[in-house]
């Protein structure tokens, strides 16, 4: 479904990614792993079009989207939950979902209900500004917002980071259900090894902007791979 080939990406003058390849087959869950600052978020930003690579290409379903604006990638079925519980702070929970719905082409109101069914706890906060939610609640909102577009490919950047333990379980279960039952293709950035081990069909390990290992989750039990991830 998604093919990233040989992308070089820079932040200003500092090059962050060096010839990164990534393949996400339809229906799979692929995990990007690596220590802090190795370029995991940069890779997702490139896939979503926030950053444009200097070389290489991003292809979605056979279409080269390397230079496509972000909102058009969303219309083609991609959804992104960026790092850090991103929500529009002064919009209410309901408005956060509504604004995403109004930007879709399907405008299907049942998408709001379906998203809220994933995180029913959000229903009691619908009128509250998102800025007043806790980190975990905001992260649930962020995932619900991403689901409004009914994506085929969901990108999650460290969804459980900085979230209280009770909510971590809910988020993990939700991702598991979306992938397992609904068959959604997922590209996940995660440092939390157990979660990745349990869910990922395959993974890549980034170090200093390069892919140093790629394989199936069985390899993650390998001592050498574990060492690449240890801080």
């Amino acid at each position: 479904m998604l093919e990233v080939s040989g992308v070089d990406v820079s932040h200003g003058r500092a090059q962050v990614l060096f010839g990164v390849d990534l393949s996400v087959p339809a229906g799979s869950l692929v995990c990007v792993m690596g220590r802090n600052g190795v370029g995991k978020t940069t890779l997702l930003d490139t896939v979503m079009g926030t950053l444009t690579p200097r070389a290489g290409s991003v292809v979605l379903d056979g279409e080269d989207i390397t230079r496509l604006p972000t909102h058009l990638r969303v219309r083609r079925g991609m959804a992104y939950v960026p790092q850090g519980h991103a929500a529009f702070p002064q919009l209410t929970v309901w408005e956060n979902l509504q604004v995403a719905l109004e930007a879709t082409t399907h405008r299907d109101r049942s998408a709001v209900d379906d998203s809220l069914d994933v995180f029913p706890a959000l229903r009691s906060f619908l009128k509250r500004p998102a800025g007043f939610l806790s980190g975990g609640q905001r992260q649930q909102l962020a995932i619900a917002r991403a689901l409004i577009t009914r994506p085929r490919l969901l990108l999650l950047d460290e969804p459980t980071e900085g979230v209280q333990p009770s909510v971590i379980d809910e988020i993990e279960n939700a991702v598991e259900r979306l992938h397992g039952e609904a068959g959604m293709t997922v590209l996940l950035v995660e440092q939390y090894l157990d979660f990745a081990l349990r869910l990922a069909d395959s993974f890549i390990v980034l170090d200093a902007g390069e892919v140093v290992h790629s394989g199936t989750s069985a390899d993650l039990h390998d001592e050498g791979v574990r060492r690449m991830l240890s801080v």
């Binding site: 926030t50 969303v74 992104y80 960026p82 529009f88 919009l91 109004e102 577009t149």
Partner: peptide, 23 residues
């Protein structure tokens, strides 16, 4: 809806784009 979209873009431009809004 247009006003809502405008507030969304003002509050977080990147997130607005990720939500499918033509910023």
């Amino acid at each position: 809806p247009q006003g809502r979209r405008m507030r969304a873009v003002v509050q977080d431009r990147e997130l607005a784009a990720y939500s499918g809004i033509a910023t």
